[in-house]
Every structure is written in structure tokens, then in C-alpha cells.
Design a protein around this nucleic acid. Sequence first.
DNA 1: CCAATTACGAAACTGGAGTTGCGTAATTGC
DNA 2: GCAATTACGCAACTCCAGTTTCGTAATTGG
Lengths: 199, 199
Amino acid sequence: MAPRGRPRDTQVDERVLRIAAALIFERGYAGLSIDEVAEQAGVAKTTLYRRWSTKDHLAVAVVARLQADDEITDTGDIRADLVDYMEKIAAGLNRMRAAGGREGPSAGAVGELVAAAARHEDIGRLTREQYATRNTIALALIERARVRGELRADLDAEALFDQLAGALYYRVMITGAPIDRAYAERLVSSALEGSLTCH
Amino acid sequence: MAPRGRPRDTQVDERVLRIAAALIFERGYAGLSIDEVAEQAGVAKTTLYRRWSTKDHLAVAVVARLQADDEITDTGDIRADLVDYMEKIAAGLNRMRAAGGREGPSAGAVGELVAAAARHEDIGRLTREQYATRNTIALALIERARVRGELRADLDAEALFDQLAGALYYRVMITGAPIDRAYAERLVSSALEGSLTCH
DNA sequence: CCAATTACGAAACTGGAGTTGCGTAATTGC
DNA sequence: GCAATTACGCAACTCCAGTTTCGTAATTGG
């Protein structure tokens, strides 16, 4: 069952990812040099490129490990559950943002990841799939709340989730503002309660 | 009042931006080569770098000209006005997205711009200022609707706008889904009407 | 043991961003 | 006219991502 030729040295992957992560956090995305990673890891550059076809692919692999597998909690209180979920997404974003290298308001590595997804078909597909999974879970949460009568029957769940998640990304990438629990609560309140005076 | 030394050739700016725009739309951000732009424009590379300190700066200058100055209309119907405004933002995003070079779902040049803002302090500051201006205008629109009683008195205008604008960016950059008038309407409806059943 | 296959290392190479140094051109202030 | 100042072109240069070539090592199947 083992593949035909010489097997890959599995220790390389772990070592490289650790070194690359250290470089990204220390000097930012631009400060990540393939040559330097290869040298510090004690492997040839070709060995790196066999595993990650571009610097973008390597960086994405590094950052992907930062994302905790956001477990979603369904307590029956949709407001609390959504705030919780938003906070988890925000934590992931803030972690990636810290990998920017630059201080001050800046998207950090988040922007580079979006650019990487735009540059490489496969990275784009991969991240879209991850987000689709997340979407599905969140939409199910919303749907359950709708079914049990907590939310409007004619709810547009997709729009609701886009609003919530989108606002987080918008803040991190465009306005550069920090996101914390207080903001997550404001966001969920605004989205749930709406803006019209028809109450 | 004229500056001291030899004046810059003002024709260069226009010519370079036109050529760079053509290259970006034809081959995408990665296909934009400084050497090629310089050659086609008939100027030296140093002349380019005197005006735009990096390729990112040049590209941002190119794309900045794509953005129409979104004039905001205040008809007194906040729902219609917001849909209108969202559609204008969406049009700008779709235009930039077209500058990606790649076909299929992809952020196109939008992702590169976000990355550029993250990479260069000055670009980040500049774009944040532009967005701040836009924010101010939109917040004023919302505020007027609130004052005349169309919107809730205890409205969180900032959160509302983040939700709307954020969802657009989220769709373009992350999910890669297209945005049209129908989506803008869904978005505004969802945000205005809220999701709770307490109506 | 042997052929096929895949991984690895080393080194040279290509291409593009950005820099540097230098000679020359255009302008202002005097 | 003359000095100071800024723009321009040209060419060589550095740096880094990514590629190519080639010799060698480890593994499977027979």
C-alpha cells in the first residue's frame, strides 16, 4: 500500500512549518524568505517546493494551523450563541493579524491570505471550502433558532450570516479597528433587532 | 512659487497610468511589470519610482481612478437610499474584481489592494481616510433617517453600516460570490427588519 | 539482486522588484 | 551668466522567488 519510491521525510514538514511560523511572526509576511527557511531547517530549497509549490502556499499552511477548529455551541439562546461564534471568528482574525509584522492598524497577514487566495486557484478553492463548512454550521444554528420560534419565519439566514461575518472582516481588513467581545455584542444586537421603528 | 529645480514631465503620469491600467486588466496584478510599463511609456524605471515608490503604489493609483466618486442620494426613503448606496459600492468592487486577470470566483485585484494596504503604512492610511470619508457620509444619511423617525432612536449606526458594507466585501473577497442589485436588497432588508420574532 | 520510482541536496540559472551612481537637462534665484 | 536644485535616462547592481539539472539515497515489486 505504501507508495512506490523513497518516502518523504515526515519530520521536514513539522520543522519547516515551525520555523516559517517564527519568521512570519517576527518579521511579517514579507520577511519570510524561502532560502532562509530552507537553511534554518537544514533542507534544500527543492525539498520545500516539493511540499508547498509557492511561498503563498507555505504561508497559508502556517496560518491555517493558527485557526482553532471553531466548535459551535447551541445553548438555545441564539443571541448568546451568535456572540460566542463571532468572538471565535474574531479571535482567529486577531491571531492572524498579529502575524503582520507591522504594528498599528493593519490587516497584517489577513490581507496577504486574501491576496494569496486570489492569486492561486487552489488556495482560493481550499479557503472557500473551509468557509463553506463554517457557513453550513452557522446556517444550521440559525435555522434551528428559526424553527423553534426565536427568529422570524421569513428570515434570510444567508444575509444574516454575511452581515455578521462580513462586518468582522471589514473591520479588520478595511478600517483596521480592533474587534472584541463588546463589538461582537453590538453587532449581534444590531442584526437581530433590526433598525426600523416598526416595533 | 514654482519649485526650485527642473519640473516634472506631467505627461508621464497620465501615460504611465493608462498603460499600467491596460496591463492590469489584460494580465492581472501579477502580470504588471514595472520594466514593461517603463518601456512602453518610453521612460526610465527611475522616473517611475520617483512617482510611485513601489509597484503596489502604482497599482493603487491605477485602481483608485476606477472608483467613481459615489454621490449619495437622500430621497427620504432610507431603504431605497441604502440599496442605492450598496449598489454603488458593489459596482466599484466588481470593477476592481475584473482587474484580477483570473476568471472564476476570485477577489481579483481587491485582495491585492487589501494586501498592499497591509504592507505599506502610507497606503493603509490613505485608504482608511477614504473609507472614513465614505463612512461619515453614510452615517449622516442614517442619522437623518433616525432623526425623522424612520429608524429606531437607539440605533447603532456604526454597526449597521459595518454590516452592510462588510457583507459586500465578505462576498467578494471570501466567498467569491457575485453581488448584484437583488443581493443589495436582501441585505438591506435583513439589516433593517432584523431577525427576531418580536415584531 | 535488479529495475523502476520517488525523495533529497547542491548548484547554477531566470526573471522581476527595487537601488545606486553618474552624466546630462531644465528650471529658479541672484 | 552662474550656482543650486530637481528631473531624467542609462546601466549595473542586489535580493529573492521559483526553475532546472544532475548525482545520489531510499523504497517497492519481481
